[in-house]
Amino acid sequence: MSIHLTILCENSVDKVSPYGLLGEHGFSCHLQTPAGNFLFDTGGGMTIMNNAKLMGVDFEKLQGILFSHGHFDHTGGLKQVLEITGKIPIYAHPDLFSAHYSKNSGKMHNIGVPWPQSTLEELGADFVFSSAPYEVSPNLLLSGEVPRVSKIETGDPNLLSLSGSGEEFSDPLNDDLSLFIRTEKGLVILLGCAHAGLLNIIDHAIQVTGQKKIHMVLGGTHLKFCSDEQMTATLNRLEELDVDLIGASHCTGLRGARMLAERFGERFFSASVGQEITI
């Protein structure tokens, strides 16, 4: 069984060929699997069409779209993709369209899905919502809601939601999902932003799949926003599990990427736009 992953949207571009690849704040990964092609997140909408064309990714051949969570930088390209695919199943948590805000300098910014659900459904979005682990296809398991067990993974205090009466409260981001890919080399954990906490996600992955060997962790780890205590615990856990490869993207941040690179050496790589991984 061979699985081919292509990073279509990410904050940076490391690959120089093909020329013209673009970076943006966001994440999207294309998957070619024996069960068909899938898209995990769609970036912010600024680069996905350009990068897909240059990387030879054909959205007409997609079997489904999977969402890690309902932030604009992961869902913003959906409308453009739907204009190509037409009717297509979209797998996500039931809270995908819940209120997501970021508060910076005292101002609230709406960072949720840019369009109403009804608008996307008119374009062909066939939403399949599940808060429980969901097998999208053989060997592809969408995590479902991740239990928040770790006491040191407290999340980003600037991410907020609003009650029906307009009161602000910390966004639980219950819709934060990851994709667990079973391979002959072990489990691949594909992350959007890891808002649920990488330690929580890893433990959940082992529990729901029964697979203790983790071959690769790939995607946004949200370590840019974590405490020193959380960073140390995360590095130690990854080393304890003897993870073969760690591909950092998006919200890992320069500090997180540097510390991962220093700790894991050649096992670490930057999962930037244009990066292709075959398992």
Results as ranks from 00 to 15, higher is better:
Tyr101Phe: 15
Tyr101Lys: 03
Tyr101Cys: 07
Lys103Leu: 13
Asn104Lys: 10
Ser105Leu: 06
Lys107Met: 07
Met108Trp: 12
Met108Tyr: 13
Met108Asn: 11
Met108Ala: 08
Met108Pro: 00
His109Val: 07
Asn110Arg: 12
Ile111Glu: 07
Ile111His: 09
Gly112His: 06
Val113Met: 04
Val113Lys: 01
Val113Glu: 02
Pro114Trp: 05
Trp115Cys: 04
Trp115Lys: 05
Trp115Arg: 03
Pro116Trp: 04
Pro116Leu: 14
Pro116Glu: 04
Gln117Pro: 05
Ser118Lys: 12
Thr119Asn: 13
Leu120Trp: 03
Leu120Arg: 02
Glu121Asn: 02
Glu122Trp: 07
Leu123Glu: 05
Leu123Arg: 08
Leu123Phe: 09
Gly124Ile: 05
Gly124Ser: 00
Ala125Gln: 03
Ala125Cys: 05
Val128Gly: 01
Val128Ser: 11
Val128Arg: 14
Phe129Trp: 03
Ser130Val: 08
Ser131Val: 10
Ser131Gly: 13
Ala132Thr: 09
Ala132Gly: 10
Ala132Cys: 06
Pro133His: 03
Pro133Met: 13
Tyr134Val: 04
Tyr134Ala: 03
Glu135Ala: 09
Val136Asp: 00
Asn139Lys: 09
Asn139His: 07
Asn139Trp: 05
Leu140Phe: 02
Leu140Met: 06
Leu141Arg: 00
Leu142His: 00
Ser143Lys: 01
Gly144Pro: 08
Gly144Val: 12
Glu145Ser: 11
Glu145Leu: 12
Glu145His: 11
Val146Leu: 11
Arg148Thr: 08
Arg148Cys: 07
Arg148Val: 05
Arg148His: 14
Val149Asp: 14
Val149Arg: 13
Ser150Arg: 02
Lys151His: 14
Ile152Asn: 02
Ile152Phe: 06
Glu153Asn: 00
Glu153Pro: 05
Thr154Arg: 15
Thr154His: 04
Gly155Ile: 10
Asn158Phe: 10
Asn158Met: 11
Asn158Tyr: 11
Asn158Glu: 10
Leu159Ser: 09
Leu159Tyr: 08
Leu160Asp: 01
Leu160His: 05
Ser161Arg: 10
Ser161Pro: 02
Ser161Asn: 06
Leu162Glu: 06
Ser163Leu: 06
Gly164Ile: 08
Gly164Leu: 13
Ser165Lys: 11
